[in-house]
Each structure stands twice: as structure tokens, then as C-alpha cells.
Amino acid sequence: MEALVASAIGMMTAAGVYLMLRQRTFPVIVGLTLLTYAVNVFLFTSGRLATNVPAIYGEGAPGYADPLPQALVLTAIVISFGMTAVIVMMALGAFLEAGHDKVDMNDDDTPANGGQK
């Protein structure tokens, strides 16, 4: 099982990184989303895998999964939603302002003299 989870994390990371290396905003956002999944699952696995032992008190519960990574990942999921929403909006704004959705600046956009006065 561990190998499956690890390989899934690896797949999502690889796909995420590949898409983030594309030159348009939309694939970059999708790539970031995939990377977010990978990171969240990775953090979650730091509590090690366990089935049928939710971190909820119960009579005769055989044990509890590590609740701390779960709590941290829960807030991470919500925060990454906020972050995704912001970059989606930035991508949309950039497209509407510039008329294209390329992520790399071309030579016209780069400050020619390094922002010197």
C-alpha cells in the first residue's frame, strides 16, 4: 500500500511540475493544483498510513490515527483554495490586461536597465 501511495504522490508531483513548466497560465494553475494535492498527501503520510482508526474517541477504539498532520493538512487544503483563487484571478486579470496568457515575460516587458532610475 505504501508503494501505491508513494507512487501516486510521485505521479502528481511529476505531472504538476511538468505543467508548471508550460508557457501559458492555465496549465501552470492546473500544475500548481496537482502539486498541492501531492504536497497535502505527502504531509498527511507523515502521520503514517492506517485504516479504520479515525481520530475520534469511541468505546473500544483499537487506536487512533495521528491527528496532528490531519489538522495541519485540513487548514492547508483551505488555504490552498484561497491561493488557487487568487492566482486564477491574477491569470484572468493578466489575460484581460495584456490580451495573451503567456507566463514568461518577453523582452518588451523586462525592465531593460534593471529598474535603475
Partner: peptide
């Protein structure tokens, strides 16, 4: 780009496996 992505993916997967 694919090579970079694979390096990242394999690395993370190995790390996650080692951790688990």
C-alpha cells in the same frame, strides 16, 4: 521539462516511501 518533472516526481515518491 519532462526529465525535470520525472526527477522531481521520483525524488518525492522515494522520500514519501522512505518516510512511510
Amino acid at each position: 521539462d519532462g526529465a525535470i518533472a520525472v526527477i522531481a516526481g521520483v525524488g518525492i515518491a522515494a522520500l514519501a516511501y522512505a518516510l512511510m
